[in-house]
Design a protein around this nucleic acid. Structure first.
Lengths: 147, 147
DNA sequence: GACTATTGCATGCGCATGCATCTAATGTCT
DNA sequence: AGACATTAGATGCATGCGCATGCAATAGTC
């Protein structure tokens, strides 16, 4: 115990890297790798960004293929404004429709169109493949265009 | 084994969520939580963005507190252009200095100033605290299909 | 009913990022 | 040496994000 580095020192000396920091950097690296690969794969194969795909996916998981914006916001890591714009892009692309919510006329129901569902179903294998391939692969730290 | 969901189906039916997807969503959630918290803490307490802090930290880890841009680029998940601008901001703030590299006059050596080192050392406990507090804390935001 | 607070979403704005491109310095041929 | 390819880093531009704000509808209070 002479050299215990895991103790709760308020903040280690200048250079040492704690276990937390190492774990955090791995998380960052993994996230960067996957984000980059997923975004490229979805964009190249399906003209969808990650945020767009994510919203389509959440809607596709619901039996009615429809939810209020606020509901979607809870399961997506986007600000409310960013989500609003993502939905705007999806709407322009014809993949979702916005409808006024009858019970609460402030709210907006977002519903997957047939084409939206189709696009999500087409894109899903792409996502699954990238995840299967890289989620547990050793980190290479390459987010290059030609990865 | 009648209901094995972990098998390597090319891509499950419409609604099912594979283990990979669950893990990916947890990664996303953890990343979002930490990124957000770290950025806020560093910004509020030290007027530093996460990228800025990260670069300062990498330089501080080196004995000479100095490295070429290309070297820094290898350990930070930023494009070369983004890194160039981060260094620009740090330089404007007086936290690093750019010097022409004598052996290769295309290259630029980035060196931590005294103030830069000081700022990094001030900010480090903030980073460590946020990590200690949230890296393994239960996730607030649900990763599950729409709640 | 009239008045205020709150909620749900959209939008103006500024900022950081990535891509494509540019300049300058090196390296590599012949 | 001269010509072309490669590499290091900076910058114009487009895009996506978050914050702050605005508008409309609902909830709560009297």
């Amino acid at each position: 115990m002479v050299h215990d580095m895991t103790a709760t020192k308020v903040s280690g000396g200048t250079g040492e890297t704690t276990a937390d920091v190492r774990e955090w950097r791995e998380l960052l690296a993994r996230h960067a790798d996957l984000t980059c690969a997923l975004d490229r794969a979805l964009q190249a194969g399906h003209s969808l960004g990650m945020s767009e795909y994510e919203v389509l996916e959440r809607l596709a998981e619901l039996p009615e293929h429809s939810a209020k914006v606020a509901t979607i916001a809870k399961s997506v890591h986007l600000s409310q404004s960013a989500l609003s714009r993502v939905i705007g892009r999806l709407e322009t692309a014809g993949l979702v429709e916005r409808h006024m919510c009858p019970e609460d006329r402030r709210a907006v129901n977002v519903r997957l169109t047939d084409e939206g569902l189709h696009r999500q179903q087409e894109a899903q294998p792409t996502q699954r493949d990238v995840l299967a391939q890289r989620l547990h692969a050793p980190l290479v730290k390459s987010c290059d265009p030609l990865a």
